[in-house]
């Protein structure tokens, strides 16, 4: 296998795990715009343990997830008192505080970044992604998954029906934070170098958009969303140079013929975000779509005739 393909599979797997982490929060009705913060906690926990204590990679990966999960639960209790816009802002602020703390902590390398020993091959994140995906798919079929869905759809009615809103929300947020931390730990060990700038506000925005565009009704959504946007630049490699010249001319710049940068991928992500929110706010993959594709018609007999 070529190094190029191995790199793509590794980053794809990391993004899929990360997306599932945010998905768990969003699927229970909490927009988590602090993904990069939890990823950074996991990455630095794994990196520090591995560099300073020399723990084996298997343990540091686990530790990355556990530490991020604990931070998530600790944050969830006060933060879940807030809702809507306040929750979005609070998670966003959390990620900024984490990045600021890392930049100012010399033990974590500060602005210089930190090199992480214990390189893992692409197979490890891939196995991790498969396990996480299966886990989340299973989770969505359990009673816990059902209560998450209920809270997402209508919190007040779920409360009336006896769902323990707070416990479910904290659990979903915490497990999601742990998954985001796990993705950070994989990132640290696969790339071998981490820096605070790699976990900036934009990363939180990207991952939330992957999840929302993929769809939050089923566990297929984050998988499709993360996969699509990770593989997009590979697909676009041929189309981009021509498009760049057009934009440069329109904006009044001087075409320099250099290779277009990564920015295009994010322009497309932005356009798709706007288009989806306008036309299909529930995301690409919906529950009815999955049911239809898997020939599992849940509609009662006679329902079709009634609607016609």
């Amino acid at each position: 296998m070529s190094g190029y393909l191995a790199g793509i599979i590794a980053i794809l797997s990391i993004n899929v795990i990360f997306a599932y982490g945010i998905f768990l929060a969003v699927a229970s009705g909490q927009l988590n715009l602090g993904g990069a913060g939890f990823q950074a906690v996991g990455a630095y926990a794994a990196g520090w343990l591995s560099a300073n204590l020399g723990l084996p990679v298997a343990l540091t990966l686990l530790a990355g997830a556990v530490v991020a999960g604990l931070v998530g639960v600790a944050l969830a209790f006060p933060i879940l008192r807030t809702r809507g816009v306040y929750l979005v802002l609070a998670t966003f602020a959390f990620a900024e505080v984490v990045a600021g703390l890392i930049l100012n902590t010399d033990a974590l390398g500060g602005a210089m970044g930190m090199s992480v020993p214990g390189y893992v091959e692409w197979q490890v994140p891939m196995i991790g992604a498969v396990v996480v995906a299966l886990l989340v798919f299973y989770l969505m079929t359990t009673r816990f998954g059902l209560t998450m869905r209920a809270i997402h759809d209508d919190e007040d009615v779920s409360d009336l029906m006896g769902v323990s809103i707070r416990n479910v929300k904290v659990a979903a947020f915490g497990v999601g934070a742990a998954l985001a931390g796990l993705s950070g730990a994989f990132y640290a060990h696969n790339f071998g170098y981490i820096e605070a700038q790699g976990f900036n506000a934009m990363v939180s925005i990207y991952v939330l958009l992957y999840v929302l565009l993929g769809g939050t009704q089923t566990a297929w959504g984050p998988l499709v969303g993360a996969a699509f946007f990770t593989l997009l630049p590979e697909i676009l490699r041929e189309v981009l140079p021509a498009a760049k010249e057009v934009v440069v001319t329109l904006f009044g710049g001087v075409p320099d013929g250099s290779r277009p940068d990564e920015s295009w991928r994010f322009v497309i992500l932005g356009v798709l975000a706007v288009a989806f929110m306008a036309i299909r706010p529930e995301g690409l993959i919906t529950r009815t779509m999955v049911e239809r594709l898997s020939f599992r018609r849940r509609t009662a007999p006679g329902m079709k005739e009634a609607t016609e």
Binding site: I205, L208, L209, K244, F251, P260, S263, V267, G270
Partner: peptide, 24 residues
């Protein structure tokens, strides 16, 4: 519960579009 965030999410989309077009 996440539907009220639709304009917020599209505004994030616009943030990406404008900022990256300017960069390009």
């Amino acid at each position: 519960s996440t539907e009220h965030a639709i304009p917020l999410v599209s505004s994030l989309g616009f943030l990406l579009i404008v900022e990256n077009l300017v960069r390009i």
